[in-house]
């Protein structure tokens, strides 16, 4: 059971993500120029400012060789978690619907927020139950989730919203208080809050660990029932 944490020039949460993964399994860094993810079960696209966030947050990273490999991994049903900038990268790549816009406040916001689990139907929330409450920090300036109203309706109808900001906790003006979403197959998840910064009670909460544990359970189950191509 091995995690791979992508590392772009400008990533800054890669080490915390690696440390979080290592609490539940084996993990290694994947440099952005690597195009081979062999032996990696779960991919984490971490937070930061990949390629300086030039043009738009996440816009350049999608063309990295490692991201082409991530797209193939996702296509095969492999779990992928995009955190913060990683979420932006997954949206820009088309692996997840929608886009992240500048916070309504224009401010870089760094604080602990409360999240409500909406669906346990994704690879990263399967060890959680709907309405479970998680305390996890956010830190971003470009985190306002946006999609056209019709797309939001579809997303909601298919259970694609996996995490919402609890009432009063939406830090950025995200549509429908969306904090995290999944693709249709449930193996690709993106969220703005940082579960990798909430893995030890020392820093106030270890709720973030549940997402990493979920991925381990997802991979173990997939091994018991191999997906036939």
């Amino acid at each position: 059971m091995r995690f791979g944490v992508l590392q772009f020039p400008g990533s800054c949460d890669d080490r915390d993500a690696l440390a979080a993964c290592r609490r539940v399994g084996d993990a290694r860094m994947v440099w952005h120029e690597e195009s081979d993810l062999d032996g990696i079960d779960v991919v984490v696209v971490p937070g930061g400012f990949s390629y300086g966030d030039y043009l738009r947050a996440g816009a350049i990273a999608r063309f990295a060789p490692a991201m082409q490999a991530v797209a193939r991994h996702a296509e095969r049903g492999g779990p992928v978690l995009g955190i913060c900038n990683g979420f932006q990268v997954l949206c820009e790549s088309g692996l997840l619907p929608g886009a992240l816009l500048t916070n309504e406040s224009l401010l870089f916001t760094c604080r602990q927020v409360e999240l409500l689990v909406e669906s346990s139907g994704s690879a990263f929330t399967r060890e959680l139950r709907p309405n479970d409450r998680l305390s996890i920090p956010v830190k971003h300036q470009t985190g306002r989730y946006f999609a056209p109203a019709d797309d939001l309706d579809r997303l909601e109808a298919r259970g694609g919203i996996v995490l919402r900001y609890a009432p009063g906790h939406n830090p950025n003006g995200s549509a429908r208080d969306i904090a995290g979403i999944a693709n249709e197959a449930g193996n690709v998840v993106g969220l703005m809050p940082h579960p990798e910064h909430a893995v030890d009670p020392l820093t106030g909460s270890d709720d973030g660990l549940r997402l990493f544990e979920s991925a381990v359970a997802y991979v173990s189950d997939a091994r018991r029932e191999p997906i036939t191509a």
Partner: peptide, 8 residues
């Protein structure tokens, strides 16, 4: 493909 994100 790159310069603009047609969604937004």
């Amino acid at each position: 493909k790159l310069l603009a994100n047609p969604l937004i």
